[in-house]
Amino acid sequence: MSTATKRFNLQDEMAISPLSRDYCAYSWLNLLDRLVLAAVFMFAGGLKIRDPIDFARNITDYDLAPEALVPIIAVLLPWWEVAASALAVAGRWKMGALTVLTGLSAGFFVLGAITLARGLSVECGCFGSMSERVGPVSLSVEAALVVLGALLLRWEIRCGRTREVKPR
């Protein structure tokens, strides 16, 4: 297969319009956003890894997870945050990393909303002992992270492979 045909097929497969190409040209913005999202989760996960019992206490405060599951959540979740952040920065498995980060943000947002609706006064546990209480501020931060993660994931799905294709 000639290079020209190969290019054509790949473009055809990804259905890249000129508009998409413009959209995909902002890779520096994508990198910047990815670094911001990853930095937030890397910091949050790192603090929780350092003090898993403190994070376990935060989880029990929410009074939603069965007590038998609290330790395993406290051990696993921070590593998911850190591993996904590391991969997002390294540019490997970006779709998977962004899916995990967006999913975690969405989960935290829903958890915060339920907690507020129940009228509980709980430290969010997002950033270890530096955490704010669950409220409009922490919910807004989570919502912003969901939007950022979803936009990055969309960019990755639409443009992740287009860098292999040179517009003719």
């Binding site: 376990a56 590593w79 998911w80 996904a84």
Partner: peptide, 30 residues
């Protein structure tokens, strides 16, 4: 990618938890 990431980080987390002085007992409630 998502499954691979979660599986690898889960294995890493459990391994670190076993050897960490701050590790938690994960098979029962605290």
């Amino acid at each position: 990618q998502t499954a691979g990431l979660l599986a690898a980080s889960t294995a890493l987390a459990l391994a670190v938890n076993v050897f960490s002085p701050a590790g938690l007992a994960v098979t029962r409630a605290l």
